[in-house]
Structures are given as structure tokens and as C-alpha cells.
Amino acid sequence: MEESIVRVEHLSHRYSVQWAVRDVSFEIPRRGIYGLLGSNGAGKSTVMNIMCGVLKQTEGDVIIADINTKQDTIAAKRHIGFLPQKPPLYGDLTVEEYLTHAADLRWVAPREVKKAVDEVLERCAISHFRKRLLKNLSGGYQQRVGIAQAIVHKPDLVVFDEPTNGLDPNQIVEIRHLIKSIAEERTVILSTHILPEVQATCDHILMMDHGKLVFVGTVDEFDNYIVPNTIFVHLANAPSTDVLARIEGVCGIEELGGQQFRIRFTDAQEVIERIVDQSIENHWRLLEIRQEKNSLDTIFAKLTEKGQ
């Protein structure tokens, strides 16, 4: 089995009397992008803060690169880069000054600091802003600086909390590309409550709900977890819905307008074949037919129900 960068074993955490996380266990190998998915309040930020040494858990263990964070938090932190939801920036420092400070905090050897800073400036495409005060940068470039500080010490594991929150569409695409390039060399954990963000960026999903882990698997496994039960049909010369409803295996029909229909079925392949055959026989002029996938929102809702 591939060596793991993270092992979380029976992790629980309680704020006052309320459990925010309860008996969560998972393992993450090296390389790839892992989405920690869940609605606000699901417990994902608590898990991330414990993993990154910001918070001490009530119960359980977190092992980073074979180091138990309870036994040697500082040694474990050497392997971690962390970008909180709000980048920890000092507005009155220049980009270069701030990243130099971040490198010092991350135990980068003094003789290697300048090289490390130059590398992340280039990697995050912010070299031209190295002398710019942080407070004078746009939100997108502040986020790039936040990512740069998280990788300046070349950690094995990088954890991002809602990294595209508050950015415009162009900035979101740029940050996604940057995160994917970072993941070519190390493991990335991306926490978000935005389902399309996971679909666009991640290889694997860990989904939390009410402090518990309710799904672990690939994005494709997540997408196909709830078997789809609808077919999209577009006809140029459509019959009435009553005629379509009489086709064997059809359970229900939803008119979408423009002679387009969503058809629920008992067996997809048989119903598709019957629609195609009857379209040819009755000159319905079939323009498109396809089995629909569940939206991530639908799957999320179903998994949440199962986790309760």
C-alpha cells in the first residue's frame, strides 16, 4: 500500500458540551487533491485545525508523515502548509518581506530563505509584486500570497480552507490551476462547502456531516453514488406526453419545454432502445437522448440524509 502522509484515527473534539467532530477516521496517501466537503458547521474546519496543530483534539490521534501530533507537534508542523479561510497577512509588509518572515517561521535555513522566497514568488506568479505592500493587493493576489506562504518551506502536505472564497470567476480559475500544479509535487487537502469546486479541482472526496464522515471515495464514485434514474430526450416532432408515458418501462415524464423531456425509468437501456425504435417508427425525429447524471447537489442531499 502507498505510504500515507496523513492518518486520522478515531478523532473527536468537543467545544464545551457539544461534539463538533465524533469518531472520524481516514487515511490519505501522498500526492493528489483531496476535497474535505461539507456544509457550514459540518466539522471540517475543526478537523483541519486539529490536523494543522492549531487546535488540540479531545480524543483520537493525527499522524502526519509518521509523526503523532500529540507527541511532537513542532516536528509534525514541518511537513504541513496551511492557508486558513482568511489569509494571515500583515498589510504593512511588502510581499517579499512577508514571505521572508513566513520562511523564517517555517524553519527554512537562513542561507536558503532568499531562494525559497524567489521560488514561491515565481510559482504563484507574484514576482512583479514583490515590493508591493500587501494591503494594496487585490483579493486574488492576496490569496496567491497566502498560498505562497503555505508552500514556502516545501511541505509534504498543504491544507487550504475555502481558497476561492470571495474571488471573481477569473480569479477562481487561476487559483484552481495553481492548486493543481502544487498537487503535482505534494498532497493537497481542500476544504469547501461548494460542490462544483470539488468537481473542478479534486481527485478524491471526504464528506462530513454533523461531525461525522459520511463518504470517502473518488469524485466519480461520489458522482455515481446515487444511481441516476432519468433520461433526457429531445424530439423535433414530439408526440403528446401521454404517448411517451405508455412506453414500457417509463415511470414518469417531466416536460422541459422546446419538445424536451425528462423521463424516469425502470431500466435505462431498455427504455432508451424503445424510445429510439418508436421515434424511428413514428417519425418523431430524435435529436438527442442521454442518461442523466445526478447533480452533485442531489448526491450531497442524499448522502446527508444517510449520515443522519
Rank of each mutant, 00 (worst) to 15 (best):
V219N: 13
D203E: 05
L11Y: 03
L93H: 03
G41Y: 00
K115H: 15
V108F: 10
K77Y: 00
I28Q: 02
V17P: 07
V276T: 11
I80Q: 08
R264D: 04
D297R: 02
L303N: 05
R123D: 02
S279G: 13
A245S: 15
R106L: 07
G38P: 02
L133S: 05
Q18W: 10
V233Y: 03
A116Y: 06
R123K: 07
A75Q: 10
H10C: 11
S191C: 09
P84C: 03
K131N: 12
E9P: 13
V113H: 06
Y15A: 05
I67V: 13
L99Y: 09
L121R: 09
N237G: 14
T218Y: 07
T241H: 08
Q259M: 10
D92T: 06
V271L: 00
T164A: 09
W19A: 01
H128P: 06
R30V: 12
K293A: 14
S295F: 00
L37R: 01
W19T: 01
H177D: 09
D23V: 07
A236I: 04
I272H: 10
A301G: 01
E270L: 11
K293V: 03
P163E: 08
F26K: 02
L206S: 07
I80H: 13
D297F: 00
L256R: 12
N68V: 04
K135F: 10
G217M: 06
L244N: 12
R14D: 08
C124W: 01
N294D: 03
V6A: 11
Y90W: 11
E184R: 14
A150K: 02
G258H: 12
